[in-house]
Simulated assay, not measured.
Amino acid sequence: MTADLISRARAGDGEAFRELTEPHLRELRVHCYRILGSFQDAEDALQETLLAAWQGLGGFEGRASLRTWLYRIATNRCLDARRAARRRPAEEWDVPRVEPPEPTRLGEVVWLQPFPDALLEGAIDVPLGPEARYEQTESISLAFVTALQVLPPRQLAVLLLRDVLGFHANEVADMLDSTVESVTSALKRARAGLQRRLPPAAVREPPPAAGSPAEDALVAKFASAWESADLDALVALLTDDAFIAMPPMPFEYQGRDVVARFCDGLFGAGRRFDLVPTRANGQPAFGAYLRAPAGIRHGTGLYVLTLTGDRICAMTRFDNSVLPWFGLPRSLPSR
């Protein structure tokens, strides 16, 4: 059947090409996202991958599976995008002032964007090779994707193909037009680099299972505290080293006391929010809507929570441009 579809697609049958590639699109989108850290850039890379596959199908010799061939194209398109992005001048931030407290640090990955859980179905439950070392849910988390972004592009690609997807070293070498020795060396360096960025597993308790009563209870407590501007209740949910990040702005706030002062400033200014639950990167998330005197509540952003045990260790705020990706409206009617 696949051979017939390939033959028809080579003859210009677009429907046959769609049937060939459709089963792989969701996992390829996630792969592009892991490399690029940006949902929009991943969408662009996926489209470029499909175009290149359509144009290059005549050169597909069948030595590897069609899936492996598509991963080869997608990986190299994403590496090209990473190299092009590096040549772009850094975006300048026109921020007139920073409300107290001062940011603890400036984040490096200002292009980070969230990935809707609705698009993960069928994308992270694919069969993995025997070399895979990471759980698929862990490898889509914001912490993991952020840590990936600071790796050199080629090391990043090798780590994803070997440790996340489980391809053999010789397969990865073929995808990257490299050697097994080079792939093995790059993987060793990538693992060391990633380890420096991610907290050791023993340091944190694992998060409660998605959709479990424990997760539901913790998330409900957060929503109640945030919507009622109850600072004490909010702080009680945080770990000592909790932090807030807010890409594309580079400001990050580290430590429970600093986060508390940041939230106190927000609530003290009279800003009150309604939250609409969703999920991003396998994590609980909320669309945030600012209450206004006129009644209409305007979307101000998306909050993604990172949980550990029965506490919240991070909150990442994205701007309101991402709301439509989650099926969330730009505004809510008055109540």
Rank of each mutant, 00 (worst) to 15 (best):
D264L: 12
A242N: 08
P284C: 10
A285K: 07
V276S: 12
F243G: 06
A288E: 12
R279Q: 15
M249H: 08
P277D: 14
A260K: 00
Q283G: 08
T239C: 05
G270K: 13
G255M: 03
P247R: 04
L275Y: 02
A236R: 11
L290I: 05
L290H: 09
R271F: 15
N281A: 12
N281K: 03
V259D: 01
F267D: 02
D257Y: 05
V276T: 14
A236C: 12
F273E: 04
R256H: 01
Q254S: 09
A236Q: 11
F243L: 14
M246F: 07
A236P: 06
N281C: 13
G265E: 08
A280E: 08
F273I: 00
C263T: 10
P247V: 03
D240V: 09
T278M: 09
D274W: 02
V258N: 01
A260P: 03
L238I: 07
D240P: 01
A236D: 13
Y289L: 06
A242Y: 02
F251E: 09
D240T: 10
D257R: 02
T278P: 02
R272F: 05
A280R: 11
P284S: 11
F262Q: 03
N281V: 08
R279L: 15
L290K: 04
R279P: 11
F262P: 00
L237T: 05
F251I: 08
D257I: 01
D241R: 10
P277C: 13
A245F: 00
F273K: 04
Y289I: 02
A288Y: 01
Q283T: 12
A280S: 15
A236V: 08
E252H: 01
P277K: 14
V258Y: 00
N281W: 06
M249T: 05
M249C: 02
D240E: 14
A245V: 09
D264C: 06
P247Q: 04
L290N: 06
F286Q: 08
N281D: 15
G268W: 10
M246R: 13
R272G: 11
G255W: 03
A280W: 11
F267R: 00
A288T: 12
D264F: 07
V258I: 11
V276Y: 13
P247K: 04
D264N: 08
G255C: 06
G282P: 05
G255A: 03
G265L: 08
I244S: 00
L237F: 01
